[in-house]
Simulated assay, not measured.
Amino acid sequence: MRNRRHRPRAAVAAATAVLLGATAIAACDASGGNSPAPKGPSAHDKPSPKPTPTWDTDPKSLAAVGDSITRGFDACSVLADCPEASWATGTDSEVRSLATRLLGKERAAGHSWNYAKTGARMADLTGQVEQAALKRPELVTVMAGANDACRPSADSMTPVAEFRADFEEAMRTLRRELPKTQVYVTSVPDLKRLWSQGRTNALGKQIWKLGICSSMLADPDDLDTSATQRRATVQGRVVAYNDVLKDVCAKDLRCRYDGGAVFDYRFDGDQLSPWDWFHPSKDGQSRLAELAYRQVKAKDPGA
């Protein structure tokens, strides 16, 4: 009876030893000799996301691209550029341009450049960006789009899809040449408000007859249904342009849109040119510089 009890225990022990030995051999074969088996990627392991570039609130150089507003048109004399009064790069002490505020007067003189051109449309921006890229600026300011809406008629305004394509091309060019340069994009001004303010000035309305923004400013005192609809169409196109600027800029980690600050700014008589009551005066240019400086220096422009 005693021998019969012990035989099963011996058999179990022997079987266990064989099983453990086989397991050990299999483990060695799977891992290549006696080295530990390699660890595979965990299902929970994910690649670390690339950090979002930090906005530099203290750029050391600046280039401006855009249209007549950035050229200071009609800020100093009638129907003439006045780049020294430019909100972006001007040297006039009354304006205190963005470049002056950011860089200081002495450094701004040699480290800021203005490639904007009166009459320029969004289609012209790529060429201006190519010029600016030669200077390798740390910040590029963009103010363009008003001339795409300011056409001889509302029907001749730049289509929104074309406007988008032109801006995207300019941004691609900028990124190809200047991958780390920051970009500050302003909204297109509220042209209808400028009409509303300027139509109270007799001299301004005479200058408008020379062809300034006819799509909005033609027949400024005409308030019939057709004229009202024409102005509403132009206004709607400006709003659509600003949506494009916001959308395209949002796709670039180093681009900052002004959030509609220029469009929302309520220019009055003091901020409008005394010669055409449409373009910014020196006071108006100074207000644009202030808006830009505030947003470029903000760590979080949405705060």
Rank of each mutant, 00 (worst) to 15 (best):
S77L: 03
D81G: 11
D81I: 07
P83H: 05
P83C: 02
E84F: 02
A85F: 01
A85T: 03
S86A: 03
S86C: 02
W87D: 01
W87C: 03
A88G: 10
G90Q: 05
G90V: 01
G90W: 04
G90S: 05
T91L: 07
D92Y: 00
V95P: 01
S97M: 03
A99F: 03
T100F: 00
L102A: 12
L103I: 08
G104M: 03
E106G: 02
A109I: 06
Y115W: 11
A116E: 02
A116D: 02
T118D: 05
T118Y: 02
A120R: 00
M122A: 14
M122E: 06
A123C: 05
A123K: 15
D124F: 08
D124Q: 07
D124M: 07
L125I: 14
L125E: 09
G127R: 05
Q128F: 06
V129C: 09
A132N: 10
A133Q: 09
L134N: 09
K135V: 02
K135W: 05
L139D: 13
V142E: 12
V142K: 11
V142S: 13
A144F: 11
A144W: 06
A149H: 04
C150W: 06
P152Y: 07
S156Y: 01
M157S: 07
M157W: 00
V160G: 08
E162A: 15
D166G: 04
D166V: 04
D166E: 14
F167I: 07
E168Q: 15
A170T: 11
T173R: 14
T173H: 07
R175S: 13
R175C: 12
R176L: 02
R176W: 01
E177F: 04
L178E: 04
V183M: 13
T186I: 04
T186D: 13
V188M: 11
L191M: 14
L191F: 07
L191D: 00
L191Q: 08
K192S: 12
K192M: 13
R193N: 11
L194K: 03
W195V: 06
Q197C: 04
Q197M: 13
G198V: 08
